[in-house]
Amino acid sequence: RTRTSFTAEQLYRLEMEFQRCQYVVGRERTELARQLNLSETQVKVWFQNRRTKQKK
């Protein structure tokens, strides 16, 4: 599997969503992935990694 390189715009949007809600599921995840031109899996994993980073 190749590592995803997020654009600055994608990271900004993901961070904004994370500040709003640390868990994104269902339709929200589908819509966010579509808007950012990413897969739902990429969005899901980004949120998982971001929550892990916050715990440290």
Rank of each mutant, 00 (worst) to 15 (best):
T7P: 02
R50M: 12
E31P: 02
R27F: 09
E9W: 10
F6W: 11
C21S: 12
C21E: 10
Q10V: 11
V43W: 01
R27Y: 10
L38P: 00
Y12V: 11
T30S: 10
T41K: 05
F6V: 10
F47Y: 05
R50S: 04
Q42D: 13
E9P: 02
Q42G: 03
E17Q: 06
N49Y: 03
E15W: 02
L36K: 00
R27C: 12
R1N: 08
L38Q: 00
E15D: 05
G26W: 01
T30C: 10
S39E: 10
T7S: 09
R50A: 09
L14H: 03
Q42S: 05
R3C: 15
Q54C: 07
S39T: 08
R20Y: 04
R20H: 12
Q54M: 12
N37H: 11
F47L: 05
T41G: 13
R1M: 14
F6L: 12
R13I: 14
T41N: 10
L14I: 03
W46I: 01
V24A: 10
Q48S: 10
R13W: 08
F47Q: 01
E40G: 05
S5P: 10
L11D: 13
L14Q: 00
R1E: 12
Y12C: 09
K44A: 13
M16F: 07
Q54R: 07
R29L: 07
Y12R: 12
Q10H: 05
V25P: 06
T52H: 07
T41M: 14
R27P: 13
T7G: 06
Q42H: 15
R20Q: 08
E28Q: 05
A8Q: 06
F6I: 11
E17F: 12
L11Q: 15
L11S: 13
S39I: 00
L14R: 00
T2N: 15
Q10I: 07
T4A: 08
R20T: 06
W46Q: 00
R20E: 07
K55D: 15
R34V: 11
L32A: 01
A33H: 00
K44G: 11
T41Y: 08
R51P: 02
R34E: 07
E40Y: 02
Q48R: 09
M16H: 04
S39A: 09
S39K: 07
E40C: 08
R3D: 15
E9C: 06
Y23Q: 14
L11K: 07
F6P: 06
Y12I: 08
R51Q: 13
V43Y: 03
E28C: 05
V24L: 13
T2D: 12
N49G: 11
L11P: 01
R1K: 15
N49P: 00
Q10L: 01
A8T: 14
R50G: 01
V24T: 11
A8V: 09
V25A: 13
T4M: 14
N49D: 12
K56V: 13
Q35K: 14
E15M: 00
E15Q: 00
